[in-house]
Amino acid sequence: MKNYNYLAFNLHLLLICAACFSCSKNDDPQPDRDPTPDEEFYYKLHRVENLAMETDDDNPTEAKSAVYFNLATQQEVPNAQAKTMRWDLSFSGLYNSFIGGNNGTNATNFGYGGAGKGGILILEKPFDEVTEVPDGAQFKLGSGVIGTDDAGAFSEGIGWYLYDFGGTILGNGTTEKTHVAYALGASVTTNDGTVIPARTIILKTPRGDIAKIKMISCYKDVFTADKWFKDTPHMYFTFEYLVIPAGSKHFEIKP
């Protein structure tokens, strides 16, 4: 009987201790959310669908506020945080269709003054064929520097989309094919037979990581040119990307 009491006492003590430990676990602090990406983020193909921009077709020449986007969290970042390292690329200008990186040293960059060391460039090469960061890559440091392509209207150099103002460059000339923005994630052939190679954006993030980005569509839920019309809901950006850590050179997908 004495032994039984001794065992029971110890068992109770054990249970009380276990209960105490399990209770104290709830009081443990939650770790603060570090905005830097973890290792799992790299060497993976990521996709963002229908990233919505504020659009007003009644005022097509009125640029809306820039949108700041974090590739790791796939979240927009508030405008007030423009001078932080919390965003990787910006969408600005008319229809928020001009893209830039996050750089603190360039006075035309939204991140000016901050610690961002980012930049952006565009290649006339399909996404899958871009296997490494080009030697001597010259990144543009300003904001809104990659947008309309020379093959379309209102061109501003090599761009990520072709704007078919009159619907005659890629469209069939009908009204519904006017004012269509063709994302150049895949190559296209214009009505006069010119082949426009696919474009791939190379982005240096503010922390020096490198991303390659394929812009796929500006239209909601539709990702191929045959389904893009003047009145298809826009601007909803769909794009895919792969990020490699700072200092790396080769784009590859790792399991």
Binding site: Q30, D32, A80, K83, T84, G113, G114
Partner: peptide, 27 residues
């Protein structure tokens, strides 16, 4: 001249310590 409207500080803590609050920018 930094023209910051918010700051996003980098905070170093004692070994094994953590912040109770989520890491946020400060106006």
């Amino acid at each position: 001249y930094y023209q910051f409207s918010v700051i996003d500080p980098e905070i170093k803590l004692s070994d094994g310590a953590s912040l109770l609050e989520e890491s946020v920018t400060v106006d």
